[in-house]
Simulated assay, not measured.
Amino acid sequence: MKWLSRIIASLLAVIALYLVAALLGSIIPANQFWKSTDSGIELFIETNDLHTGIIMPVYSDVHDWRTLVRPEHVDSPMGYSSHILVGWGHEGVYRNTENWQDLRFSDATSAIFGSDDVLLHVYHLNYPQAYPHYRRRITVSEAEYRLIVKAIKERFVLDEAGQAIPSPGYGKHDLFYKAYGHYNAFYTCNNWTSDVLRQAGIRTGIWTPFQGGVMRWVPEGETDNQ
């Protein structure tokens, strides 16, 4: 019983340290003095309280996603829309955990200890609007957007013809794509979102394993009060 108590106490201490580090990482900013521009490329950062992702226009003067995220990948033309929401994460968690209550122990264990089985999740949206809790708007410069595009494109696994490799998603408006990367407790789907933003020079937390650490850094005044 003494050894069991020590093991439990050690596990609780590790969890507590992890949570404290996550809190500190989420409130310490990278790119502290960045500001959303008055004109440029309008993006959104979205959360479902588990995963976060970046919403981008399918086509802009800076980049055309149709060459990689192709219209023929979706079952119906109605499923292909004006914008895409892109996130990266653990394959088992992504495929099986659309919401927190769906999380399976085996997927959670694999995600915590690490796996190379990762996916990009691409969801098609038609002219999205900002909402205070789960979808917030930022406007980035063309140079910043090019860096965001570059970071995301580098995650796509391509076939011999140079095409992305899709597989079915949750419904007719989303798909999963085979991706590069290593997922673990220290580099989660939310760390990835912040990492993409940070590489583009956009303000975010220095370490954000949870969605709240990502969403707190969306600039004030960038939401529609709907």
Rank of each mutant, 00 (worst) to 15 (best):
G221S: 06
Q129F: 12
H90Y: 00
I112F: 13
M78I: 10
E142F: 07
P128T: 04
A143L: 13
N184S: 09
A164P: 05
P166K: 05
Q129K: 13
W88M: 03
L175F: 02
D116T: 15
Q211A: 13
H73G: 05
A111E: 05
W217K: 04
T109M: 15
A108H: 01
A9K: 15
R146V: 12
R155Y: 05
V93T: 14
W100C: 00
I55D: 04
Q129P: 07
E91M: 12
E72P: 08
H121C: 04
Y127D: 15
L68R: 10
K2L: 14
R70S: 02
E144S: 02
P77C: 03
L197C: 05
Y145K: 07
G89E: 00
D174E: 03
A16K: 10
Y94V: 10
G201A: 07
N126C: 08
R216W: 15
S110M: 12
L147H: 11
Y123G: 10
G25D: 06
Q226C: 09
D64A: 08
A161V: 00
H83P: 03
P132E: 11
K178T: 11
I202H: 05
I202K: 06
N190D: 09
Y123S: 14
S115G: 10
P219N: 05
W34V: 01
Q101G: 09
W192T: 03
H124S: 11
V62I: 12
V157D: 06
M78P: 01
T193I: 02
A30K: 13
R70A: 04
G169A: 05
N184K: 00
S194K: 09
G205V: 07
H182Q: 13
A185W: 09
